[in-house]
């Protein structure tokens, strides 16, 4: 039993596909069992370029839908109605989205309007005996679970860095279609007064970066050491809530239960104590490195490589040595 898969294509204001979408498409190739992979591009003033369509096809999309809605698709009620309409049109048995707050808002609405079973923050997904079975870690990364969707329609929000993306050599072209949606009056009751996209930082995106260096209170507001290490590692810069509350860095850099959830290959905590709220957003990382002057800091309970020392000497020394080793 296989059914078409619908994939929501998150994209930037410049029309680039966000990296985690590549993972969704890679995963759906197998899950669709040849029944079709439908990529949904919501036209929010930005069109999918021919290069983007080719990229989506190379990742496995058989169809690319330009979803044209008569309201702002950034509103969750609008996005949910657009996706419901597309689920209908494609006959998809699975909707895959990147796990973000916005996408989860739409997923929750779809659970009510379509009867779908929803799994959020999944880090794996397989078809087992005709059911979608998702893997996810819970309780701040301390438990592994698997969860089956028992409803006919499944919606799964996948965390970035869960799947190794790959392209199909010689993939056929995707069929491009336009899907026009007229949303209900009730979806228009919220007004999006203002939406300000954050400018790109020149560094990898925190949520999907493969290496993250995070700074905490121990930096005393001097993030230059954190940035220097991030530069040599090609890493994204993250932070604890203390650092963002202090205004040392923007709130979008906050890692943790009320910030961004990350699972990079390498996480480096610099002057971070490892409070449970912070761990909830990073404990699923591949390798955890921590530099902290307090040998009793809780982060050392989960660190693969811990240094008890002063970050202001250890981190610059490490950065210089890495630079030297890399030549």
């Amino acid at each position: 039993m296989t059914a078409p898969v619908l994939v929501l294509v998150d994209h930037t204001v410049d029309g680039a596909v966000r990296a985690p979408v590549r993972e969704l498409l890679t995963l759906s190739r197998e899950l669709s069992g040849g029944a079709g992979v439908h990529a949904a591009w919501t036209v929010d003033g930005v069109e999918p370029s021919p290069e983007v369509v080719a990229e989506l096809a190379s990742l496995g999309a058989t169809h690319v839908h330009r979803v044209v809605v008569d309201a702002d698709p950034h509103l969750s009620a609008v996005l949910a109605e657009a996706l419901a309409s597309l689920l209908d049109a494609t006959g998809a048995g699975l909707l895959l989205v990147v796990s973000s707050f916005e996408n989860k808002e739409a997923a929750a609405r779809l659970a009510i309007s379509t009867g779908a079973g929803v799994v959020t923050d999944a880090d794996g997904l397989a078809l087992v005996d005709g059911r979608y079975v998702a893997a996810k870690t819970v309780f701040a990364g301390t438990w592994n679970t698997t969860c089956a969707v028992t409803a006919p329609l499944a919606i799964v929000a996948l965390k970035p860095n869960s799947v190794q993306p790959s392209v199909v050599e010689g993939a056929p072209q995707a069929q491009i279609g336009e899907h026009v949606v007229a949303v209900s009056d009730k979806a228009r009751r919220v007004t999006l007064v203002e939406r300000t996209e954050r400018p790109a930082s020149g560094r990898p995106d925190l949520g999907s970066a493969s290496v993250v260096v995070a700074g905490g209170r121990g930096t005393e507001g001097d993030f230059s050491v954190v940035e220097e290490l991030a530069d040599v590692l090609g890493a994204a810069v993250g932070a604890t809530r203390v650092a963002t509350d202090e205004g040392w860095i923007g709130h979008d850099a906050q890692i943790g239960q009320t910030g961004v959830t990350i699972a990079p290959r390498l996480y480096v905590g610099v002057g971070v104590s490892g409070a449970v709220h912070h761990r909830g957003g990073m404990q699923a990382s591949g390798t955890i490195v921590a530099i902290n002057s307090d040998p009793d800091a809780p982060i050392f309970e989960i660190a693969d490589f811990g240094v008890v020392g002063d970050l202001f000497t250890v981190v610059p020394q490490a950065a210089a040595e890495i630079r030297r080793l890399k030549g």
Partner: peptide, 15 residues
């Protein structure tokens, strides 16, 4: 898991 106390070369060891 490894925990090292910095005695002057922990940055090099981390690298």
């Amino acid at each position: 898991r490894v925990l090292v106390q910095d005695t002057g070369d922990a940055g090099v060891r981390l690298a």
